[in-house]
Simulated scan of single mutants.
Amino acid sequence: MRAQHPERGAAAVEFALVLPALLLLVLGIIDFGRIFSAQQTLTYAARAGARVMVLQNSQTAAVAAAQNAASPLGQLPSSSFAVSPATCTSGTQVAFTVNYTFSGTGFFGTFPLQGKGVMLCGG
């Protein structure tokens, strides 16, 4: 006699139903980790740029320091960096911002990210 297995393909069907949700979850975790790392890098780069601006009072040196600190994200153009105010006078605050557009796996789109560092001149 032949044994009947009415649930023979049930595991494959269940796996096919769960696989899209599982892949979406895994891709979301990967992208979140990469976005978090990129945000931390941008914050570090902005602080490095603000630090150099406060110490050397030179925008070009500050942008170079921030570009070096943001190198794990690739070569960012100079237009990604902004310093306010342009010169550092004693008692004022310098705000250094870094803008970056993160493109992850392509499944979730792009995210604009910004790092900001603020330091006191002459402090």
Rank of each mutant, 00 (worst) to 15 (best):
G28Q: 10
P20Q: 05
G123H: 09
S79R: 04
R34Q: 03
G33T: 06
M53T: 03
S79P: 01
L22P: 12
A66Y: 03
T92E: 12
V63M: 04
S37N: 14
F96W: 09
T60D: 14
A62W: 04
S58L: 08
A95F: 09
N57D: 13
A95I: 15
A50D: 12
A82H: 08
A46D: 04
A82E: 07
G106C: 07
V18D: 09
G122F: 00
L22E: 11
F36Q: 13
Y100R: 06
P20M: 07
E7S: 02
S80K: 01
A48D: 06
I30G: 08
F96M: 06
S58H: 04
N68H: 13
A69W: 08
Y100L: 08
R8I: 02
I30Y: 07
E14P: 04
G115W: 11
N99R: 05
F36K: 13
M119Q: 05
I35N: 06
G106Q: 06
I29H: 05
L22R: 13
E14F: 06
S103E: 07
P20L: 07
S37R: 15
K116M: 10
A65S: 11
N57Q: 10
F111R: 15
T89D: 08
T41P: 00
V94F: 06
G115P: 08
Q93L: 15
F108V: 02
P20I: 12
T110W: 08
H5P: 04
M1D: 07
H5G: 05
G123Q: 11
F111M: 15
T92M: 11
L22T: 14
M119K: 05
A82I: 05
Q75H: 11
A3T: 03
A48G: 02
G9N: 02
S103Q: 09
D31L: 04
G74Q: 03
G122P: 00
A86D: 08
G123Y: 08
T105D: 10
L17G: 12
A65R: 09
G33H: 09
A70F: 00
A62S: 04
R8C: 01
H5N: 13
A70K: 01
V13Y: 00
Q40W: 12
E14M: 10
A16P: 00
R2A: 07
Y44G: 13
G122T: 02
V54R: 15
G115H: 12
G106T: 06
L19H: 10
